[in-house]
Design a protein around this nucleic acid. Structure first.
Lengths: 217, 217
DNA sequence: GTCTATAATCAGATAGAC
DNA sequence: GTCTATCTGATTATAGAC
């Protein structure tokens, strides 16, 4: 009777496939964080996953698709984090945790922690084939829109609450926060080995939100 | 009589050579700013300079040397700018222009202007063969030391004057300023075409020095 | 020193057996 | 779907004539 076994079989195979692809995107994500898209080779990915390069190409049609899948996964993680934060803050209306600025700070801190842990995939700074692929990827763009909308609303709210400089266009604030995901200051400070990860995060957070100039208030 | 003509001849040839190499580094500098080291091909450089690729390799032994020469030239330009600033401020002791913070701001603004003009060569964010070559290049490292020393002294002075946040290690401030040379926020804002170059610079300057958070003082 | 032509290498992608 | 072996194209670098 195939009516019973077939669906189960299919589901099992699908699970194996999904697991394999998750292992792949995890490796890609790590390599993308470590060396970036250009320096990452498909051979390396295959070696790290432990399968042949040709097998990779059964799952993904190109190096760009490979990287896209990893970026989409990372974007989904970001979405999950933001939604969690959103849900938490709804339960603490009026309290400090509910303040928009604090949500922005928590997000930025999370980003820096991810980066220091070597788990933040980095986009090429210049235009490249990967950029084009990402812009053509619905799941990625949807995720990006989602994240940007939520962060954007927090930025506007924080400006209303007088916590974020009101003269700055929200888009500029958004970009400034996004830029923390690829801030070279983090790597430089890490390389200097003079500070702990926590200290590095605190310094970058401070320069980002408080600025370099001393405050008198 | 070779005693008269020879030196002149030699000097002329040397001048031609220097001019040619200046044309080369200028092209490399532009391409480095536009697409970065990895995406820049030696063929492109040759095409833009208007000579054969093999001729390039008579002047420079590798792609890395080519890029190094351009980076050294850019570094020298920076040195010249800083020294000019230093000399100017010596003549206006006690005045606003002589304040260390203002020199740091002027330097940052100059960096952003260069970047917006497409004349700021960008290093690969991750380790690469170029990094190794630069670290092995005496003229580059000498220039970097020079620039860092001068900026470092201004940072310390600005902290003494109470203008820069005193809790920040000077090295963190230095890195934060260096990072403006490859700040993706500049490109993102430029691409959005919502703001003029001046506005972009003002926004980046503001977030860098004043921070995102509103100031009450 | 400049050129044309070519070598050498590396990395993305594919063929075809199993 | 996975493998080994191979193709293809791009790119760095060089040989050798002038």
């Amino acid at each position: 009777m195939t009516t019973i076994t077939e669906p189960l079989k299919k589901s099992f195979k699908a699970q194996m496939l999904e697991a394999r692809e998750l292992a792949i995107t995890a490796s890609v994500n790590r390599l993308l964080a470590e060396k970036g898209f250009d320096a990452m080779t498909v051979d390396e990915v295959a070696a790290e996953v432990g399968i042949a390069k040709a097998s990779l190409y059964k799952h993904f049609n190109s190096k760009e698709e490979l990287a896209c899948a990893a970026m989409v996964q990372a974007m989904q993680k970001a979405q999950a984090f933001l939604e969690e934060l959103h849900a938490q803050s709804s339960m603490s209306e009026g309290q400090s945790a509910g303040k928009a600025l604090n949500k922005l700070k928590a997000t930025t801190r999370w980003t820096l922690e991810l980066k220091l842990a070597g788990q933040m995939p980095t986009l090429p700074s210049h235009n490249s084939s990967l950029r084009a692929s990402l812009m053509a990827s619905r799941p990625y763009m949807d995720g990006l829109m989602n994240v940007s909308d939520l962060l954007g609303s927090w930025i506007v709210q924080a400006q209303k609450e007088g916590d974020i400089h009101p003269a700055l266009p929200p888009i500029a604030v958004l970009y400034t926060l996004y830029a923390r995901a690829c801030d070279p200051v983090v790597e430089f400070l890490k390389m200097s080995e003079l500070h702990s990860d926590e200290e590095i995060i605190d310094m970058v957070m401070s320069t980002c939100f408080e600025g370099l100039v001393a405050r008198k208030n």
